[in-house]
Design a binder for these strands. Structure first.
Length: 884
RNA sequence: GCGGGCAUAGCUCAGCUGGUUAGAGCACUAGCCUUACAAGCUAGGGGUCCUAAGUUCGAAUCUUAGUGCCCGCACCA
């Protein structure tokens, strides 16, 4: 390897390997009946988006899954793309027009639409390039876009199909109106905010009853101008005399009935409710029940309209609120103001309180679509990870409301409906109609509204693969295997994809849904632009590399839930990447360039090599199992343990003597085994850290026992390699490792300097004695031992420390170093601790119920453990005595 | 209000269907610049597994209640 720097420099390699991969075309998938497909559809970021840590985590998880399956030989297609993001994009373009001193209205619909297209062409690619920097191995040749011609065709098709099936209808309803965006929005685009507000009490005079009033309380006094009734509970004794009377709305001077309705709760406020059917959802229902007039008092920007009297007409709704209160006070109709904390529905995008408004909108009847989506999850055709989200999903679907899909925007798919000005009927179709489909009149014009962005997003598992055509792609890649996304869009997106997928294809769009966690700052707050507490993944990538960013993310983030992260956490990733780098650097420097790597057989292998191979094999199997159930952070953990703890800390250290020794064959075998295992580790790490592993893997000569395709991207995952496994030897070496750690521990306790060697006497059976004999050179080197004597008849030296393992006790004479007083205290404490355990275990064993009822295996284990602890205790006591 | 989740080391998190002395990383302490790596090596300290009761031979794990956080959904004009 040409690199000599001890610190891995990601900047030298990431672009290089990315280009190499793209050139190799390994991310591209075509339908192939000989191979099994593995499909993931990316949650398409908005074209207006910039990469944030949420994307970082979400896409790293998808990439790990797709790279892992790719290395398992699956025909992997990770479909990328972007969403045209109706509202967000329109807002961006409007802002830029504003800067230029013009506006949407001024440039006109067609020009504005064109501006949006231009904006997208210029800026829409940014997020895509950012995704590539994290290493997302998407099939970029398939990049889709919700406003492309083909995807727009799919939108048109589903609209017409649903319309023809009677599931899309137009209705005059109370909708959530966003005065900032000047459009209706769906229930799912609201967020409820707790705010400090007031409850105002005031009176309406009663007609024909001089001096009599009805007192009402409201949080939105400005809506009184649209009141068409006052309601009380029919059983409220206080107000029986008022039912049937007429109240007079001040300012508007409108006479309105006082009605009785069960909806009214006597104990809240005054027990009398003003009814504004055109501006409140509950009042709307009451209005329908009592056939009240619906008076819309607002314009699209929430200023009061011509249905309101001067001086309020033209005022903003909040300004009007104050003015009304003032005017009520002037007229002596005002009673009092009470502070109250209440929830106000806000527009998520518009950031202002929504105004319930009566308007004509298009809706999808969702009830019919919901049923199969519920069944799919009940039958476990559709599974959630974590499973608890299933309940959330059911709850929403079981209480589903019709979906308002029309938006009063210009950027989006225009609703394919034509209104006839002669017969007032509507026409639709896959092609634009030239005449009314009912009366034949040519006086038809297209509906002004566009469709909700989600009305195209819900087709994402279908439309990029060619739907509505029955393409080969669609047949092969649909349904996808797993959807990885945030739980915040479970209704907005996930459930709707399931519904439309089942409706059109009679098949779920994905088998599994994985919800990744939400990344928060150290205080547990969500990242937000206003707080400025976000972590910029690109900054992390610049500083530490994509691999470090990826590793840290998936290492920390559990499935579902939230995870607290700070920038310093990413140091972990840098460390691990660098560790791998240096392991490779060391190992490759020991390869004989001319001779290359040697094939080895079982008979060539020593104990530690057999152990190391076994660790690799076991780890590979475990990683598969863990990833199969999406336990990604656990999989990352076992890979880390293999690479750092097993390979670097022990594997490399145990081989150094052979590598630097005189026996050429041993030297070559040692290097060859290490390279074999390291190759396996790189493969295991490749899905997590694709860049550094590719660089290291390419730098390694081909191993005679392993395949070596052009790229690590398509190399076989280690679980497919039939790595030799030596269970018995692995267990033996593990006990030697424990033994070595024991000696080190004793040395440390006694304060033996690193350079000094110690003698060790081990009292043990023949088995362990011969194992130690086999391991003699490792023990001596790794534990700093000069002479190692083991057997049933070894001398017991004076002034020594003792440590005990399974089937042996080891004496280490450290008299010259030891602080005996300290050691006495330590031993006494240790004796107390072990005594407790022995007592516990003894009572367990002597408990008749335990022996009778617990499984024999457990009883056996407990007995063994007790014997072991008793031996330990005995030895501790002996050590204490030995101190003199 | 209804539903869901979480509570384990100073911090971030593991701990699968109950079963050795509850783990990892970071942080901390001590000793080491041991020729791959000081972004390192070796060893170590640190836990009433939120509280209480229950089930069980046995509970961090199961049940119930309480407390404290978090997240949905619905909301009272």
């Amino acid at each position: 390897m040409p690199e000599i720097n001890a610190v891995y420099d990601h900047k030298k390699y990431e672009q290089k390997w990315w280009d190499f991969w793209e050139k190799g075309g390994w991310f591209h998938a075509e339908p192939d009946s000989n191979k099994k497909p593995y499909t993931i559809i990316i949650p398409p970021p908005n074209v207006t988006d910039r990469l944030h840590m949420g994307h970082g985590l979400n896409n790293t998880i998808q990439d790990i899954l797709i790279r892992w399956k790719r290395m398992h030989g699956y025909n992997c297609c990770w479909l990328p793309g972007t969403d045209h993001a109706g509202i967000a994009t329109q807002m961006m373009v409007e802002k830029s027009l504003e800067k230029q001193g013009t506006s949407r209205k001024q440039v006109g619909r067609e020009n504005f639409f064109q501006k949006c297209v231009e904006w997208r062409n210029e800026n829409g690619g940014i997020i895509v390039e950012q995704l590539k920097r994290i290493g997302a191995s998407c099939d970029w040749s398939r990049e889709a876009y919700t406003m492309s011609d083909s995807l727009s065709r799919a939108v048109r098709k589903i609209f017409v199909d649903l319309y023809d099936a009677g599931l899309i209808y137009r209705g005059e309803r109370l909708v959530n109106w966003c005065p900032a965006l000047k459009t209706a929005i769906s229930d799912d685009e609201l967020e409820s905010k707790e705010v400090d507000g007031s409850l105002w009490y005031y009176r309406y005079p009663i007609k024909g009853m001089e001096g009599q009033y009805v007192q009402i309380a409201t949080t939105r006094p400005e809506t009184m101008l649209g009141d068409t009734a006052v309601a009380v509970n029919p059983n409220d004794d206080r107000y029986q005399h008022l039912i049937g009377q007429t109240a007079i709305v001040p300012f508007a001077n409108r006479e309105i009935p006082i009605i009785a309705d069960e909806y009214v709760k006597s104990e809240y406020g005054t027990g009398c409710v003003k009814i504004t059917p055109a501006h409140d959802p509950n009042d709307f229902e009451i209005g329908k029940r009592h056939a009240l007039p619906f008076i819309n008092i607002m314009n699209v920007d929430a200023t009061l309209n011509e249905n309101t009297p001067a001086p309020f007409c033209g005022m903003d709704r909040f300004e009007a609120r104050k003015a009304i209160i003032r005017a009520l006070k002037d007229m002596d109709l005002f009673e009092k103001q009470e502070s109250t904390r209440h929830a106000v529905p806000y527009s998520e995008r518009g950031k202002v309180p929504i105004e319930p408004m009566l308007s004509k909108q298009w809706f999808v009847n969702m009830k019919a679509l919901a049923k199969p989506a519920i069944d799919a999850a009940k039958d476990e055709k559709l599974c959630f990870y974590p499973d608890s989200y299933k309940k959330v999903y059911f709850h929403w679907l079981e209480n589903i409301q019709d979906w308002c899909i029309s938006r009063q925007l210009w950027w989006g798919h225009r609703i394919p409906i034509w209104h006839c000005s002669e017969c007032s009927e509507t026409s639709t179709g896959l092609e634009d109609p030239e005449a009314c489909q009912h009366c034949g009149s040519v006086k038809i014009s297209q509906d002004e509204d566009v469709l909700d962005t989600w009305f195209s997003s819900w087709l994402w598992p279908l439309s990029p693969f060619g739907w509505p055509d029955e393409t080969e792609d669609l047949k092969y890649f649909y349904p996808s295997n797993v959807l990885v996304t945030g739980a915040d869009i479970i209704f907005l997106w996930v459930a709707r994809m399931v519904m439309v997928g089942l409706w059109t294809k009679k098949e779920i769009p994905f088998k599994d849904v994985y919800f990744n966690s939400i990344i928060c700052d150290k205080d547990g707050r969500k990242f937000s632009k206003t707080l400025g507490n976000g972590i910029d993944p690109l900054k992390i990538i610049d500083q530490r590399g994509a691999d470090a960013m990826r590793y840290t993310c998936v290492n920390q983030a559990p499935i579902g839930g939230r995870v607290k992260m700070s920038e310093t956490d990413f140091e972990n990733g840098s460390r691990f990447v660098n560790k791998l780098w240096n392991a490779g650097r060391f190992l490759y420097s020991k390869i004989d360039a001319k001779k290359g790597l040697l094939a080895f057989t079982a008979s060539d292998l020593n104990l530690t090599q057999k152990w190391l191979l076994t660790e690799l094999e076991e780890c590979a199997v475990e990683v598969d199992t863990l990833l199969e159930r999406y336990a990604i952070n656990e999989a990352v953990e076992v890979v880390f343990q293999l690479a750092w703890r097993h390979f670097c800390d022990w594997g490399l250290e145990c081989s150094k003597d052979a590598i630097d020794g005189d026996d050429e064959h041993q030297r070559q075998i040692a290097v060859s085994v290490l390279c074999y295992v390291f190759d396996g580790i790189l493969r295991l790490c490749a899905p997590i850290m694709p860049f550094v592993t590719e660089e290291l893997w390419q730098a390694m000569p081909k191993h005679p026992l392993l395949d070596k395709p052009e790229s690590l991207v398509i190399a076989k995952f280690p679980s497919l390699l039939q790595v030799p496994k030596f269970k018995q030897e692995a267990q033996e070496w593990r006990s030697v490792m424990e033994f070595i750690t024991g000696i080190r521990s004793v040395r440390n306790q006694a304060g033996v300097p690193l350079k000094d060697r110690v003698e060790v006497y081990v009292e043990c059976g023949d088995g362990f004695a011969s194992l130690l004999q086999t391991s003699d050179r490792w023990v001596k080197k790794l534990a700093g031992v000069s002479t190692l004597s083991a057997g049933s008849q070894v001398p017991r030296p004076q002034r020594c420390l003792v440590f005990v393992g399974k089937g042996y006790q080891a004496f280490v004479p450290v008299g010259q170093y030891l602080d005996f007083a300290k050691e006495r205290v330590r031993l006494e404490n240790e004796i107390k601790r072990v005594e407790k355990i022995v007592i516990g275990l003894t009572s367990k064993i002597s408990n008749k119920n335990f022996v009778e009822r617990a499984p024999t295996e457990v009883v056996k284990q407990t007995k063994e453990q007790l014997a072991n602890m008793q031996a330990q205790l005995e030895n501790l006591q002996r050590s204490l005595e030995a101190l003199g």
